[in-house]
Design a protein around this nucleic acid. Sequence first.
DNA 1: AGGATCAGCGCGT
DNA 2: CTACGTGCTGATCCT
Length: 529
Amino acid sequence: LAGKFAPLFSRADVMKYGQNIKFDLQVLRKYGIEVKGPLFDTMIAHYLLDPEQPHNMDHLSRVYLNYLPIPIETLIGKKGRSQMTMRLVDVQLLKNYACEDADVTWKLSRILSEKLKEEKLENVFREIEMPLVPVLADMEFQGVKLDVNALREQSAILKNELQQAEKEIFTMAGSSFNLNSPRQLGEVLFEKLKIIENPKLTKTKQYSTNEETLQKLAGKHPVIDKILEYRMLQKLVSTYVDPLPDQINPLTRRLHTSFNQAITATGRLSSTNPNLQNIPIRDAKGREIRKAFVASSENHVFFSADYSQIELRLMAHFSGDAIMQEAFRNNEDIHRTTAAKVFKVAPEEVSREQRNKAKTANFGIIYGISAFGLSERMGIPRSEAKQIIDSYFETFPGVKDYMNQCIFTAREKGEVYTLTGRRRKLPDINSQNSVVRGNAERNAINAPIQGTAADIIKIAMINIHNEFLKRGLKTKMLLQVHDELNFDVPKEELEEVTALVTSCMEQAMPLNVPLTVETGVGRNWFEAH
DNA sequence: AGGATCAGCGCGT
DNA sequence: CTACGTGCTGATCCT
């Protein structure tokens, strides 16, 4: 059957319609069919129209066609042990299901296509999201090579440390219990050991034992530091070091993540099974895990390229703030410059503490932070935090105006937009509830920035992919981590690829401040980053 | 006994 | 009471 349709699939002048087309591309690829031509994905069309709604076909069909498609369960049974695979389903039943599936998709495409036009989303759909689909399909297909032995060694060491920490904690606590249970841990700390008077509680009235809480109790009892150590080790082993090798595809011997293009409210991608967008980096022990993400052979290198301060640069672009733009045009250390101006000292006089505070403030600004939030984050009184914010806005008056402008636009239109016209609806922007409204206001500030950064890297990915094809390069794009791209590069292509990737990323979209990219190379992700 | 779901937690940008 | 995600373990509820 696949063979009969193959000529049609490979015609570049025929539009292909589907619901979650990346999946179909991957299935057809297994049959040796390379799909060409423009794509129309109903799932992604609907994602652009209303990113925070569900995008599955049953839901779309119910809402837009007033029709409930044949549930898949009637073919393969309910989830669980007895569930069949599609291959085992009676052909007549399967035919009805498949034909309906195609029909519903087509009917949806007529409606969603019209809506994309009406709502000015056709451009981002046709120029960004649809061309990105085959790029992501290729990245997923390629997969990344994992050094299983490296992880096995780490696992053995970490488990040893874990056992040691556990033993010491039980000795100090005077009893054994399940350390992985926050509830049991809370009872031991606050009822048995009674390390403080009025312990903080969670919203369900359990004792709070999260890192922030424990950190504040670190001086009260020596067991606290051990618990923090245990938590860190347990996280690394149970989330990364042990599960990752199990997820290697035995046929390809690679780790194949899935990039989801229709999940986030802002336009970012997400990554699952496994999530390769949250591999540890901050902590030294966690960072070691990156040594297991290796180039595909001795003749290849792991190459990493990431945008420097892309979100703050977008704040400078959108706000038009002359001072912030000047800092980026001069390629200054933005946190140092911010500290110098906010604390009114010479740039070379900025202390480490001042720079850190400025850095926190800069991040806070992108998220629409309050004086309360900033004081919590910096560990300073709220009055001091307010002074810093006031001084920040005095330094960058354009930023303050822009933030107000975002909220104004959101109130008028009920939505905000990225540079490509991608939008986020903000129905709560006029809510009577100040907590709900405040959340919408922060989204009004953050979504255009975070979303435009997502637009930019998506454009860069498409251009890089096309350029690799055009030049016949063997380099493979492997991973995207929001402001970073990772590649497997034959050593002889490294020079050309470095220039090409840097240029595609920096020139993805013209802005009134420069975008800069930093690159790194090594045998693995640890060395490249 | 085993699955589904929620809470709590912590990893990334 | 700073934005956006994924996924682990334990607890609890349901079948």
